[in-house]
């Protein structure tokens, strides 16, 4: 067991970790269960979190690799009283069916929109290409994210 320290949802936190522990295991054993495990090979995106502004798959990233970095998980994004505009848009668009992929979608889309608030449809499709959804066929998910990216709607949505 060794210690690592990183910024987790805005708080500097220190954890004791196993050297072969993945970030998803670290998060989930600390009750941050919004980060989902769907494939454990980095191919479904259910475990997407934001590291230093970019979406990464927590199932293939080792916990030690976040030493000194900034990690955002779904738990840090919004809550019932202050949902992120993406969460509101996804909920209202009918984009949440089983919902298992939704936190990962939110994280990946947020990473994009934080960087490019006016991302185009093409950019959005490309940036969400690592998040599998088997329920929606992506149509309503894209509707929601595109709506959040549309110029001028950010303030209204929040």
């Amino acid at each position: 067991m060794k210690e690592i320290t990183f910024t987790l949802n805005g708080e500097v936190r220190t954890f004791r970790i196993e050297p072969d522990e993945t970030l998803i295991d670290l998060l989930r054993r600390n009750q941050l269960t919004g980060t989902k495990r769907g494939c454990d090979t980095g191919m479904c995106g259910s475990c997407a979190v934001i590291m230093d502004g970019r979406a990464v798959n927590a199932c293939i990233l080792y916990a030690f690799q976040v030493e000194g970095r900034t990690i955002e998980t779904i738990e840090g994004v919004g809550d019932f009283d202050r949902p992120h505009p993406l969460q509101t848009a996804l909920a209202d668009a009918g984009a949440v069916q089983c919902g298992f992929c939704t936190p990962g979608m939110v994280m990946t889309a947020k990473a994009l929109l934080d960087q490019q608030p006016n991302a185009t449809e093409t950019e959005i499709k490309k940036h969400l290409d690592g998040n599998l959804c088997r329920c929606t066929g992506y149509v309503k998910i894209l509707d929601a994210v595109i709506q959040c990216a549309a110029p001028g709607t950010e303030e209204e949505a929040s």
Binding site: I60, L128, D129, G130
Partner: peptide, 12 residues
């Protein structure tokens, strides 16, 4: 780069 796997993998 743009045709490489997926966005999270491109990021990593």
């Amino acid at each position: 780069a743009c045709e490489f796997v997926t966005q999270p993998i491109r990021n990593m």
